[in-house]
Design a protein around this nucleic acid. Structure first.
Length: 551
RNA sequence: GGGCCCAUAGCUCAGCUGGAUAGAGCAACGGAUUUCUAAUCCGUCGGUCGCAGGUUCAAAUCCUGCUGGGCUCGCCA
């Protein structure tokens, strides 16, 4: 589809070329009109009033003829206090509808490939336990952002960073050992701050079942290696399963251990040394990150010789850069808010491009049941694992409810509303609307009326009621909005767009009959039905939800 | 104390190149059904867009200050 705002802007600046000065030209941009007005609006006359010392409405009248001459313009009017309203021409609208009908939904909103590789890293929870319901928001946002970026022509890779190295991992291994050693007739103390969940003894049992005989004959160090590997593998499998049930998959599961074992920390440390941005203090190696905007210098190598997370993170992103991504977008929970400044300082100190790393932070999710906020703890017996949440409310409902507000805002996830099989539930509303559109199509085919495969300007002449026009506007502005959502990295906007389209469809459906006497009108309305159906499917593709053909 | 996020209708939230009367869903009330799926639709009610300044022809939107809430400030990851 065309981005209409861009298209019109281009035509406007061409049309007004001789009428605007160089300084004035950039002001000639249109915006979508409010309901009740024509399709697009230019507020240019208002902006020119000051420098031109004329009343805006007079300027509007002067510019109107040139604007009306544009190829895409149908009816154009200058109105007080100084707007130029544009209605798209019938042939232009017909061309757009034709292209919508001739394009598969999965690529309807897709631009041409731009040859750039971009990475979205999300979830990346430690492999030391099952995913928590809170991780679900990152999963939903990250996966939708990834498809959203694909619409912009990027070659997108979805990556999960597996933090399988370091003190958390040691703690995890020790916690399993505490339950596993007694099965070998040995003892091992539960470490302070050890992992507590019921899954820990289960992991111990599973590892013992598989490799118990081996374990008893090994040295302690080898034993721990097996426990760690076994625990990690089992947990990652459960994480992967939970995500798949939510419709989320990854291209790459990238191991932190891999980085370290393959010398990436050393490489990046050398890079820091070459750039002369490190120093030694208290037996540790420090990065002079304050030179790059950080509020304090960071330790890269601890006094005991172990790398810090900071060093490995630098190595990780350096590695991403080497893999050829033009950009890495990392999606983190609000508890990582403090990482933005240090990480950007890291990128700078490594000499990576300023815009290489983008960090998206999503705020906390509160879960509601019976109108009350749910306290997630073992004591309350409330669901706490993502897999349980998806099982309880369903894949599509889970995805939709995690997208109900902007990542910047805290989110209330109403478990009962999400489960509800009624149209108060936005996920169901989308499904129902799609089923209804499909039903109309079946009916029309059933009575033997022609189902159009392309639109002509004559068809558009039939679409004159407010409901027809509003639905048309919803269809035509899709690419504008999707491009905006992608540019501003706001996946939730796609859900709102889909909801808006569904609303327009249902209002149209209620008010205007598709099947009726006038064959020309049937055909024209069918264009709306089919295009709406395609567009709804296109949105659903981006959102990762499934739309049934009947309910 | 520093950094970041938030504050819009009774509730949950949209509103992103600054534009015309501030929107949706829920809740409340009232309507539409010999149905192309009423699992729908329409209408009414409901807002000093946290407060105070500023920029602008124009501010929910941009800037400054303040108030309230959230997250966060490790040689953890």
């Amino acid at each position: 589809m065309l981005n209409l705002r861009e298209t019109i802007d281009r035509q406007v600046s061409l049309a007004l070329k001789g009428l605007l000065s160089l300084e004035e030209a950039p002001l000639a941009v249109c915006s979508p009109s409010r309901p009740g007005f024509l399709d697009y609006t230019l507020s240019l006359p208002m902006k020119l009033a000051r420098t031109r010392h004329r009343a805006p409405v007079v300027i509007a009248q002067e510019l109107q003829p040139a604007v009306a001459d544009m190829a895409c313009a149908g009816f154009v009017e200058a109105v007080a206090p100084g707007y130029i309203n544009i209605q798209l021409s019938d042939s232009f609208v017909a061309d757009e509808l034709t292209s919508m009908l001739g394009t598969a939904p999965a690529v309807l909103l897709q631009k041409e490939a731009n040859g750039q590789k971009i990475q979205v890293e999300f979830v990346s929870a430690n492999p030391t336990g099952p995913l928590h319901v809170g991780n679900g928001r990152g999963a939903a946002l990250g996966s939708v952002l990834a498809t959203l970026l694909e619409t912009q022509g990027y070659d997108v890779d979805r990556e999960y960073y597996v933090n399988d190295y370091g003190s958390k991992m040691k703690l995890f291994t020790a916690s399993i050992a505490h339950y596993l050693f007694p099965m070998l007739g040995l003892e091992y103390p539960m470490p302070a701050e050890g992992y507590q969940g019921a899954y820990v003894p289960e992991l111990a049992q599973a590892i013992h079942d598989r490799r118990g005989s081996e374990l008893s004959s090994l040295l302690e160090e080898q034993r721990f290696a097996i426990i760690e590997e076994g625990g990690k593998t089992l947990v990652l499998a459960s994480i992967r399963r939970a995500l798949e049930e939510m419709g989320v998959s990854f291209d790459t599961w990238f191991s932190e251990r891999y980085l370290i074992e393959n010398g990436w920390n050393d490489r990046v440390l050398q890079q820091f040394r070459d750039r002369d941005v490190v120093y030694e203090k208290d037996n540790a190696v420090w990065l002079r990150s304050t030179d790059f905007g950080d509020d304090k210098d960071r330790v890269l190598v601890r006094h005991d010789g172990e790398p810090t997370y900071t060093l490995t993170d630098a190595a990780y992103h350096f590695n991403k850069f080497q893999r050829g991504y033009v950009k890495s977008i990392d999606v983190f929970g609000a508890d990582h808010i403090g990482h933005i400044v240090p990480m950007q300082a890291l990128m700078k100190s490594l000499g990576l491009p300023d815009d290489f790393l983008e960090i998206i932070i999503y705020q906390i999710v509160h879960f509601l049941r019976g109108g009350q906020r749910v306290v997630l703890s073992k004591q309350t017996g409330e669901i706490i694992e993502l897999a349980d949440l998806v099982r309880e409310v369903g894949k599509d409902q889970t995805r939709v409810f995690f997208l109900l507000s902007s990542a910047d805002s805290e989110l209330e996830f109403d478990l009962e509303a999400a489960k509800e099989n009624s149209l108060d539930n936005p996920a169901y509303y989308l499904k129902y609307t799609h089923a209804r559109l499909c039903s109309v199509e079946r009916q029309v085919r059933g009575i033997g009326a022609g189902v159009p495969s392309e639109a002509t300007p004559a068809d558009i002449l039939f679409l004159k009621t407010p409901e027809d026009r509003e639905l048309l506007k919803c269809l035509l502005k899709a690419q504008d909005e999707v491009d905006d959502a992608a540019r501003t990295r706001q996946p939730h906007r796609v859900l709102y767009l889909a909801g808006e389209l569904a609303k327009a469809v249902n209002t149209f459906y209620q008010k205007e009959k598709v099947i009726q006497e006038d064959a020309g009108l049937v055909r024209a309305r069918m264009l709306l039905v089919l295009a709406s159906q395609r567009l709804l499917q296109a949105y659903a593709h981006v959102l990762g939800v499934t739309l049934p053909e009947s309910m």
